[in-house]
Nucleic acid binder design. Structure first.
Lengths: 341, 341
DNA sequence: GTGAAAGCGCTAACAT
DNA sequence: ATGTTAGCGCTTTCAC
């Protein structure tokens, strides 16, 4: 019995193709200085032997051809679209995407990003990171980085965001155009000053304020959290008011779910008594029995743009940083109608 | 300005601690042959310098301390729990989990698994893979592998599954106990013989058949797909029958969503006219406005067991393969009640 | 218990 | 255009 069949290496390929290992390496990387003849020989040998380069060995000198994507909470429904956009854009390159899971919290985030750096990622995409900007810049100093879904710019990393101000405005205008005047907003409570300036939830709340002001409507904000429970509790607060709102803008779809639950429990009919809108256009917003009006972030495009920025920056690490902002759209469904006369 | 600060290496640590690089390496790996004194010196130097080992370099000779998890469709709501169980079990080890995304299809699956092998994963977890068993064995021959959520055993890889037969039985018994006699099942159509024997959807359908037979009830299966549309179309078929069922067991929660939509559209009240049960106990099953009766797979435990098996097998690659089967539980909610008298 | 030295599989710098 | 050679940062013999 043969001793645990050794993996095919570049040396085997070189021997088979009757060329040097350098030649093989160059063909692998489409590098300069290879004649078509040699390329053909090498590719033939690679195919015959079923050779596959070892990323670790490549990484010792050059690249690993791996792009690390740090996910926030995996359950965050806003992320699959981004990921699709990313992987699709990378499909025809030699780069492979690997995901770092299970963050939720600065420590976990640090652990995952460190792990990815240790593993020689050629570039990293950080989706909605909560780490302080200084930490993000530290990472970006070590490896090309794009930060997704977080406002706030830096000279060392690129950003791709969805325009949350515009999204909030879409919702307010939609509801106001339907005739609503008392439009409440349920926000995710935030005190950390950096996050107030950079995290989407804070920007949405600010956008709501501004849009309400622009329409001459009175601002009515309930501060809870971006969870189903937060939506439930927020809705309870709103129901207790003497002057109930006729429409509720929940800062996220999960929040809207909690709102719907609280309203159903209280015997309040949606949208007949109260209209409800969410944000993120998650899979369950589209579900027949729910049919929630929501804001669709251009997730796919976010991912595609992030991929482009990363490839760019791998090529030129010193180009000035770019900030890309994409526009959300409103998806009106059955949970919003004109208020009762 | 210093020239792009070189990363700290084992050599720096050795110098700082006044020991050999071998010593440092041994301490890093908790290997045999290090005195407490030396360990202390080395750890101190590591801390002082903020040294972190490079996984790629380690992988050249030894391990990369990385475990690759291949995800099926990222949107599959059944997977976060598993992942939590996995990462949690690995938290206190030196191993880091990285995810390979975006499969759906044999080709994509092959691409991701190859990429992980190329990147020197120490072990791999394949979640609900659709590749032929031969391919799984090929992978398992190269790197310790555990296959999750797919029935069918092999001498070279371990498996962790949830007992889908038991799950289907839970649903049938729940509905039959409520008094239902006409219980229909919507399955994911499957013809491939291997998948018929190994994939969860097929096992669930078989479990339904068996449980119905055991209760002396008539089998009524509609074959569509495990999608919302599949549920919608399946429900339409059931509604067109002269003798409508009083309960529908959808093979997955997404299917149940389609069923609910079709029933709502047809003016059929749930659960008053027809009871509906799903499978997977996904996040939206728990949503207030939906409140779907469903089967909860022990996702967390699946992940934890998979982690244990992988660590075991990294230690001893030749031990006989293990098959672990976990038991699901029924979560009864508002979509199931006794049939009208 | 400790360290010197030889690679792991590739790429980059330097010949030719 | 092609080949030679010297590492990348670690682990693993194998001496002592």
């Amino acid at each position: 019995m043969q001793p645990a069949s050794r993996r095919i290496t570049i040396i085997d390929v070189a021997r088979q193709a009757q060329v040097s290992t350098t030649a093989v390496s160059k063909v692998l990387r489409n590098a300069y200085g290879t004649s078509p003849t040699m390329q053909a020989k090498v590719r033939k040998a690679i195919a015959e032997l079923g050779y596959r380069p070892r990323a670790a060995a490549r990484g010792m000198r050059g690249q690993t051809y791996t792009i690390g994507v740090m996910l926030p909470d995996i359950r965050n429904p806003f992320f699959p679209e981004i990921l699709d956009g990313l992987t699709e854009s990378l499909r025809d390159t030699d780069y492979q995407v690997l995901l770092g899971p299970g963050c939720n919290g600065e420590d976990a985030e640090a652990r995952v990003t460190e792990a990815m750096i240790d593993r020689g990622m050629d570039a990293m995409a950080l989706i909605a990171p909560i780490s302080p900007a200084a930490r993000l810049e530290h990472i970006a100093g070590l490896v090309p980085t794009v930060v997704i879904g977080r406002h706030g710019r830096s000279p060392v990393y690129d950003t791709v965001t969805d325009d949350d101000t515009a999204g909030a405005t879409l919702v307010v205008n939609h509801l106001a155009d339907l005739g609503h005047r008392r439009i409440a907003h349920i926000e995710h409570h935030e005190t950390n000053p950096t996050r107030l300036a950079e995290m989407p939830n804070a920007i949405r709340a600010a956008g709501y304020r501004e849009a309400m002001r622009a329409r001459g409507l009175e601002i009515d904000i309930v501060s809870t959290t971006y969870t189903q429970e937060g939506g439930y509790l927020g809705a309870r607060q709103l129901l207790d008011r003497p002057d109930r709102p006729t429409a509720v803008f929940a800062g996220a779809d999960v929040v809207a779910m909690g709102v719907l639950e609280a309203l159903a429990e209280a015997g309040v009919s949606v949208p007949h008594d109260i209209s409800v809108a969410g944000y993120d256009n998650t899979a369950f917003a589209a579900l027949g029995p729910i049919s929630l009006t929501s804001v669709d972030q251009a997730g796919h495009q976010i991912g595609a743009n992030a991929a482009r920025l990363l490839l760019d920056r791998i090529t030129d690490r010193r180009r000035p940083s770019a900030q890309i902002k994409l526009s959300p759209t409103l998806v009106a469904r059955r949970t919003t109608t004109p208020p009762r006369p």
